[in-house]
């Protein structure tokens, strides 16, 4: 998608009427396009080139890139630094902000800084517990939860003030997002939780991995009944599984991921399990894309980032739309 007022990479787009951010992600969604986002794994390195290389594999296939914030409570390059590096190149970044490692003072400071550096989207998370990561002895912060952090950032943007009430001279113009997990109990509360996130300020939401279409359908039905799909852009999460063994491992070790037996069987029965994982992911997108209330898809291809291009291509969700990337418009 090409915008008339396309700026130089690294410079923000003008904010359109009815929009809150200067980013292309919000524009794509508000233009009614089916959006594709992907997750980038931050390197264990201080080398910016590693960050650029990791982003490049998505070129032409995604509208925005999530930079995770110590996901799984493992230590990596910070999301704010990843976002700053890539936003400078012109990428549309979704900065994940977890409440596990920083209190309200640090989060507000980071968001101001990120916005100053061209980050237009922030995704608020509570965060995985420290027990699941490589520093289980760390002190968990959890000064805020995802909900109070959303409403705090909304206050910074709309009321132009810190949580303390102190005024900002320029607010962070950010599109606010949240995560949702329709696949974890208590199931009948989950749509209500989404409603609460919308009330707190969420404008888009990305879900946990979907491997169970029926479960997502049930969730989306309730979400649509509650009219939430008109208040928030919903991008279900998907991702390729590398093998049946990997799937087993994820199922028993990664919090909140639900993988039905049928999926594991299908993987185990395939000759090329990796390819089958990619096929399952494409099938998921195909089943999701026409669901009422769905506005896009979020692809988490951890350690299989190269597969995102194939998945998007095969699913055909972009039609002939080519999302922006640094060399797209260079003839």
């Amino acid at each position: 998608m090409y915008f008339e007022d396309e700026p130089n990479p690294g410079e923000n787009l003008p904010i359109l009427p009815g929009h809150v951010s200067a980013g292309r992600f919000e524009r794509v969604l508000r233009a009614g396009q089916f959006a594709v986002t992907a997750e980038i794994a931050p390197p264990d390195s201080a080398d910016p080139q590693e960050v650029y290389d990791r982003a490049e594999v998505f070129d032409g296939y995604v509208d925005a890139i999530n930079a995770t914030d110590g996901s799984g409570a493992n230590c990596h390059m910070s999301s704010v630094a990843m976002c700053a590096l890539l936003a400078h190149k012109g990428y549309s970044m979704i900065m994940q902000v977890s409440c596990r490692d920083r209190n309200r003072i640090a989060i507000q400071g980071d968001v101001l800084g990120a916005s100053a550096m061209g980050v237009s989207n922030i995704l608020c998370l509570s965060g995985d517990g420290v027990q699941s990561g490589d520093h289980p002895e760390a002190k968990p912060v959890f000064d805020l939860d995802c909900m109070s952090s959303l409403s705090m950032l909304k206050g910074m943007r709309d009321q132009k003030q810190f949580l303390s009430g102190r005024k900002l001279t320029k607010p962070p113009e950010v599109f606010l997002g949240a995560a949702a997990n329709p696949f974890a109990p208590p199931f009948d509360y989950r749509p209500h939780r989404l409603a609460k996130k919308v009330a707190a300020g969420a404008q888009f939401v990305q879900t946990q991995y979907c491997f169970d279409i029926e479960m997502l359908e049930n969730y989306m039905k309730k979400v649509v009944d509650m009219g939430l799909h008109e208040k928030v852009f919903i991008l279900p999460g998907v991702g390729p599984l590398a093998s049946a063994r990997a799937a087993e491992w994820i199922r028993s070790n990664v919090a909140g991921v639900h993988i039905p037996d049928a999926i594991i069987k299908r993987l185990a029965g395939a000759e090329n399990q990796k390819q089958e994982g990619i096929n399952i992911c494409t099938d998921m997108i195909n089943a999701i894309k026409d669901m009422q209330g769905v506005h896009g898809v979020h692809i988490m291809a951890y350690r299989m980032e190269y597969a995102v291009a194939e998945i998007v291509e095969k699913s055909g969700v972009l039609g002939n739309r080519k999302p922006w990337y640094p060399t797209r418009d260079i003839a």
Binding site: P140, C146, K196
Partner: peptide
């Protein structure tokens, strides 16, 4: 709640309803 969440369950609740942490 080990994450002192005051606004509803996190995404890590186990299938049997037990706590992630």
């Amino acid at each position: 709640c080990p994450k002192t969440i005051r606004n509803g369950p996190c995404g890590g609740v186990r299938p049997n309803g037990k706590c992630e942490v």
